[in-house]
């Protein structure tokens, strides 16, 4: 299993992120903004992709996961830039429902929903990269 641990870690992060986002929207009833939905589209399918890849011991699943991860990561970066006012709000694509910059949760001043999402995507990116490196080392050895 040791060769697979980075994918397990990535799966764990995706599970926690999914459960967390569902908790925010379905239990705490915080409305998800448009950008949150785009990030969910990238995050949720990572669970079946990574889980199936691990079960079938198919290393290619890391590639499929990366293809989903990248747009998610880009959206998360963009969302954080908007949220923290680096980009002006007028660029925001949110025209319906809640604004993507409304601050709904601010724990300890820096834990916010967009920042949690970004941390999740970065962690998964790091895991996939670690997996990729260990795989390359293996083939070289």
């Amino acid at each position: 299993m040791n060769r697979w641990w980075p994918l397990f870690a990535a799966l764990a992060v995706a599970l926690v992120a999914t459960a967390g986002s569902l908790f925010f929207s379905e239990v705490m009833k915080l409305p998800p903004c448009v950008l949150c939905w785009y990030q969910r589209i990238a995050m949720y399918p990572l669970i079946p992709i990574l889980a199936l890849g691990l079960v079938l011991e198919d290393a290619r699943c890391a590639l499929y996961a990366t293809a989903l991860l990248l747009p998610g990561l880009v959206t998360a970066v963009y969302h954080n830039l908007l949220y923290y006012g680096v980009l002006p709000e007028s660029v925001s694509p949110c025209t319906q429902g809640i604004s993507c910059t409304s601050k709904q949760i601010e724990w300890f001043g820096f834990i916010t929903i967009p920042s949690l999402s970004l941390v999740g995507f970065v962690l998964i990116a790091a895991c996939l990269w670690a997996f990729h490196r260990s795989k390359r080392k293996e083939t070289l050895a």
């Binding site: 299993m1 697979w4 397990f8 799966l11 764990a12 599970l15 926690v16 999914t18 459960a19 889980a51 691990l54 079960v55 079938l56 011991e57």
Partner: peptide, 17 residues
């Protein structure tokens, strides 16, 4: 589908659920 990896996954998913 016999895999060494299946039980850790089941564990992980159950834990989060």
């Amino acid at each position: 589908m016999k895999s060494r990896n299946i039980w850790p996954i089941v564990g992980l998913v159950s834990l989060v659920v």
